[in-house]
Design a protein around this nucleic acid. Structure first.
Lengths: 329, 329
DNA sequence: ATTAGCACTTAACTATTTACAGTGCTAAAG
DNA sequence: CTTTAGCACTGTAAATAGTTAAGTGCTAAT
C-alpha cells in the first residue's frame, strides 16, 4: 500500500533518526530523492496519515512511530554485512573449546554489548518441560544437606535443604526412591508424582517421612519456579540518550529484575523475534530482539535490549551469527 | 575540641540536611538553640573552618562535609530505638525455621531496603581461606561433568567440566585421589597441592591424566576467584535525590557490578563499619555500612549502600539487629 | 560573648526577545 | 495529475534582563 517512494522516505527517516536522535525534516531527504522539499512534505504527510510517522510538535520534523519501525522491520530491512573485525572477535570465543556453554554465551554477548552499546541477556529456558535426569544429595552437616538436581537438557541446580533428626541412611533411601520412580518426569509434573507415588509409600522406608517429604517437595517446587537470567552490559543501555531520566531508568531496571517479565513475552516462532516499543512490555522506548539457540544438550534464549531507535539490521545480523554458531556447538 | 554548642549545631545541621536535602541556614537553628542567628553564624563559621561544614556557594546555608559526618558518626550518633513494626517484620523471617540461611539474608535485607529506600547487598566472604570439605563429580553426558565443591564453611558451588575421552572409572579415581589428599586444604593452597601432590602421581591411576588434571585445575582456580554478591533493592538508591543524573547512576552501577570492589574496601574490625563518601570507593556521595555475620557453619558480610546523607543511626540499628539475630542462628 | 543591623552575594524564577527549523497550504508550472 | 515555488505560521531553544528570596559576613553596640 505504500509507494516505493514512500518506503524510501520512511527508510531514510528511520536511518537518520537512528543516527542523530533528532526529528528529520524534509530538506535533508529531498537531496537524496532528487525532488523538492514540498514533494517530500506531501509524502511525509501521507506517511503520517498512515500511522508510520509522528511529529513532536506542530512544526517539527518527523520521527518514526512504532508502526513505522514495524513496517521497516517487516518489509524494508536488509541484512547487513558483518565487519571482519566483529566476526574475528566472536570467532575467538566460539573456537575456544575449553569454555563451557554458559561462558561462551556470556562472553559473546559481552562482545555484542560492547559493539552496540545495548544490554544483553541470557535467559535459561523455562525448565518446566525439562525431564528430571538425576537427583543427588550430599550431607554437609547434621541438619544441612545439599540437593543437586540435573535435567535432561543439562540444567543443574543445587539447593540447601534443612532436615532435623533424619539419619543418613534414610536420606539415601529416599533419594533412591526418587531416582527410581521419578526420573524422566517433566519438572512440572514432579509435584504430583511426589504426592501420589512417593508420599503413600515413603513411610515404609523412612521413619521421619514427613520432614523429609516436605523438604524434597520444597526443593522441587522452588526448582520449577526458578528462572535464570544473566545480564551482560547492564548499564550499556544507559548510554542511549532516550534513557536520560531517572524515572525511566528506575522503571526499566525494576522491570528487568522482575522475575518472569522477559520470559513472558509471547513467542512468535520466527527465527529472530523483534518486540518494538510497547510490544516489549518494558517501556515504549525500548525494543527487545530475542532468539532461541539449541545445542545437543542445552537450549535457551538470548536477547538484546536497546532503544526503540535501535540499529535493527545490525543487531539482527549479530544475533543470527551467534545463534548459528551456538547451534553448531 | 568542639564545644558542646558546636556539636549541637553540627548535629542539627546533619539532621536537617538528611531530612530535607537543602543547605541549612542559621535561622532554623537559632530557634532550637535559644540564641540569635548571628551567634549561630559564628559557630557555623568555626565549624566550617574546622572542616566539618561546607557551603554550596558564598551566601548559601551549610551542608555537612565528609569529616562532618565522620565526626557525627564517631562521636555524636546515638543508637536509635527500632519501631515495633520493623522488629515484627524481621522477626517473622528469623522465626521461620524452614528458610535456608541465604533466604533469611535475602528476605531480611529486602525489609531493610523497603524501610530505608537504600540498596542492600549480601557478600559471601572470600572463600580463599575456607577449607575444602568435599569434591563430588556427576557425569551428565559423554563429555560433560558437573563438579561440586563444598567447603567447611558451607559454601557450595557447581561448575561444568568438559573432558574428552576419559572413562568414568578414571574420573572416579581422580576424585578419590583429590578427596584423599586435598581435603582440609585452604582453597588458596589447592593449586599448589594439585601441582605438587596430585600431578606427579596422577599418571599411575589415569591414562588421560593431562586433560583431567587441567580440568580440575581450572575448576579450583575459578572457584578461588569467585566472589558472590547478591543485591537486594538494587534500584532503591535511585530514589535518593542525589542520584538524579545518569552519569552518576552509570558510574555507581558499573562499580557495583565490578567484581571485587565491594569486597576490597579495607576492613576495620569494628562491629559495624561505616565508609563515608570517598571512603566507600564508590562515589563521593555514597556511604556504605558493612557488618559481618557468623553462624555455626557460614559467615559473610551484609552491607547497606545509600547516600552520604544517610540516616546513619537508623541503618546502624537495623544492621546490628540483623547481625545479632543471624549470629544466633 | 552575644546580637542587631546592614551591605552584599547567589540561585532561581519569570518574562521577553530573537533566531531558526520546519510545516501546511495555495497557486502556478510541468 | 504530479510537482514545485513561495509564503504565512508555529513551536523550540537560547540569550538577555529583571526580580525576589534566602542566607552570609562584618561592624558596632549591648
Amino acid at each position: 500500500m505504500l509507494t516505493t517512494r514512500q518506503e524510501k522516505v520512511l527508510e531514510i527517516i528511520i536511518r537518520e533518526y537512528v543516527k542523530n536522535v533528532t526529528p528529520v525534516g524534509s530538506k535533508l531527504i529531498c537531496d537524496e530523492l532528487n525532488c523538492s522539499s514540498a514533494t517530500v512534505r506531501n509524502e511525509m504527510a501521507a506517511l503520517e496519515n498512515a500511522g508510520f510517522l509522528e511529529k513532536t510538535h506542530i512544526s517539527s520534523g518527523r520521527v518514526p512511530s512504532e508502526e513505522g519501525y514495524r513496517y521497516y522491520v517487516d518489509n524494508l530491512m536488509k541484512p547487513r554485512e558483518m565487519t571482519g573485525e566483529d566476526m574475528l572477535k566472536l570467532q575467538t570465543i566460539f573456537n575456544n573449546n575449553k569454555l563451557a556453554l554458559n561462558e561462551v554465551l556470556k562472553k559473546s554477548l559481552e562482545i555484542i554489548s560492547e559493539i552496540t552499546d545495548y544490554t544483553s541477556v541470557v535467559l535459561g529456558n523455562s525448565v518446566t518441560d525439562n525431564k528430571l535426569q538425576k537427583v543427588e544429595v550430599l550431607p554437609i552437616s547434621e541438619t544441612k544437606l545439599i540437593a543437586i538436581i540435573i535435567t535432561d537438557k543439562g540444567h543443574v541446580e543445587h539447593k540447601e535443604m534443612k532436615v532435623e533428626g533424619v539419619s543418613l541412611d534414610e536420606i539415601t533411601k529416599t533419594v533412591e526412591l526418587i531416582n527410581k520412580l521419578i526420573i524422566g518426569t517433566p519438572i512440572h509434573e514432579i509435584k504430583e508424582k511426589l504426592e501420589f507415588e512417593i508420599k503413600p509409600i515413603i513411610n515404609q522406608y523412612v521413619s521421619q517421612h514427613e520432614a523429609l517429604y516436605n523438604a524434597f517437595y520444597d526443593v522441587f517446587n522452588d526448582f520449577a519456579m526458578k528462572s535464570d537470567k544473566t545480564f551482560v552490559g547492564r548499564t550499556k543501555i544507559l548510554n542511549q540518550p532516550e534513557f536520560n531520566n531517572v524515572e525511566k531508568i528506575k522503571k526499566i531496571f525494576n522491570k528487568l529484575d522482575d522475575e518472569n517479565l522477559l520470559q513472558s513475552i509471547e513467542e512468535d516462532d520466527k527465527d529472530i523475534n523483534i518486540y518494538i516499543g510497547n510490544e516489549s512490555n518494558l517501556d515504549e522506548d525500548v525494543t527487545i530482539i530475542k532468539t532461541k539457540y539449541k545445542t545437543d544438550n542445552d537450549e535457551g534464549t538470548i536477547a538484546i535490549i536497546g532503544p526503540k531507535r535501535m540499529e535493527y539490521s545490525k543487531v539482527v545480523t549479530l544475533l543470527g551469527y551467534i545463534k548459528d554458531n551456538l547451534n553448531k556447538k
